[in-house]
Design a protein around this nucleic acid. Structure first.
Lengths: 194, 194
DNA sequence: TTTGAAAAATGACCTAGGTCAACTGAGATG
DNA sequence: CATCTCAGTTGACCTAGGTCATTTTTCAAA
């Protein structure tokens, strides 16, 4: 049951729920464990679920037509992740998802989410708040892309993911902030960011 | 009353509501009209409301520290727009909003939204769906930034805003796709995109 | 119809960041 | 202990897109 504590707190921070309601939500979840580098979702597959990270870390990324990987999301524990495009449209997505370390998750499938929302509409609010937050973060990322240099984006990244910065490789961080590994290496030379 | 038809359809596409419920929603809205180039929101102000565009067009943008304008959103009629960061956190935002042509809008303030959701929780679903969609679009924009050239981004833009392309200036489009006006001009030379 | 301001085009030059290949070094596997 | 693989570094060179100043075009207002 321990695995559910983090999620329960996450929910109770946003909405008020009774123990019964919480139990019903938890009943709908499926626990999944992944090993380091295990691929969770491939390009072309439909993202059928929201994934809550209990422990570990998951990245979502796309491979462009030159074969380059670009990390879109880095989701540490206490975060939800999905390919939102695929999830909302129900069509095949263009993202991969991969565990970057051993990871335990709780899966809420689209169907189960619909059951949940039909039975306990107050969870609409929970998901609305989550999505608003995710949208806000995403908008900020666009702003940062448009108005900051690579080094400034790195500094922001380091500030917002203080722990991730040690568990991720430089390649991964470079990919997230949108530069090549070799430029990244040059960029941080001198600056004592690590 | 005509002004509300577009919004009513927009809502009924996503959730089922009775006429009474719809009337209550409409009762909470405030109609506002803006002239071309009228500024609706300034950097440092708090975005207290969602704005639905009945007719016309609104852009949101930020001015970076070099004084450059970067357009984040272009919202034609039948869209909602807000500075989501400011709106969800209730803190001052860093975006401007400006009408790019004479525009009629319907405003839903944060307070009124709370009244609405408290009284008619089914609207949670409406806003959740809106936000999911906006999030999906925003994620795709990040992907495009990371993996496409300026010309490819322009082609996508032209495809998704077929009408806007004639009512916007090149400067505005350039700003939206993230290049300078002079580069934009060179980039389209030869290509018959317009 | 003129005029004035803003949009667009363009020339000359610049730079942030990319490319590609070679090299180094450290942790995992035999 | 050896070796293999993969992350990181670095050199030499490249290019997409930026900068800035000048010119041309467009178009709204008087």
């Amino acid at each position: 049951m321990d695995n559910y504590n983090l999620l329960q707190e996450n929910i109770r921070k946003r909405i008020e729920v009774t123990d019964d309601e919480m139990s019903y939500f938890i009943f709908l979840l499926q626990q999944k464990k992944y090993t380091r580098k295990q691929i969770i979702l491939r390009e072309g597959e439909i993202s059928h679920s929201f994934t809550f990270i209990v422990s570990g870390c998951i990245k979502s990324y796309l491979i462009d037509k030159k074969g380059e990987e670009h990390i879109l999301t880095i989701a540490p524990s206490d975060w939800w992740i999905t390919d939102i495009n695929s999830f909302v449209s129900g069509t095949p997505g263009n993202l991969f998802m991969e565990a970057i370390e051993p990871t335990t998750t709780l899966l809420l499938s689209r169907e189960k989410q619909e059951l949940l929302l039909a039975k306990l509409p107050k969870f609409e609010k929970y998901f609305r708040i989550l999505t608003e937050k995710a949208f806000a973060v995403s908008q900020q990322r666009i702003i940062d892309y448009m108005s900051l240099t690579a080094l400034e984006r790195l500094e922001k990244f380091a500030a917002s993911y203080p722990s991730a910065i040690h568990s991720l490789t430089q390649q991964q961080i470079a990919s997230y902030i949108g530069v090549t590994p070799s430029f990244f290496s040059r960029m941080i030379k001198g600056k004592n960011i690590f």
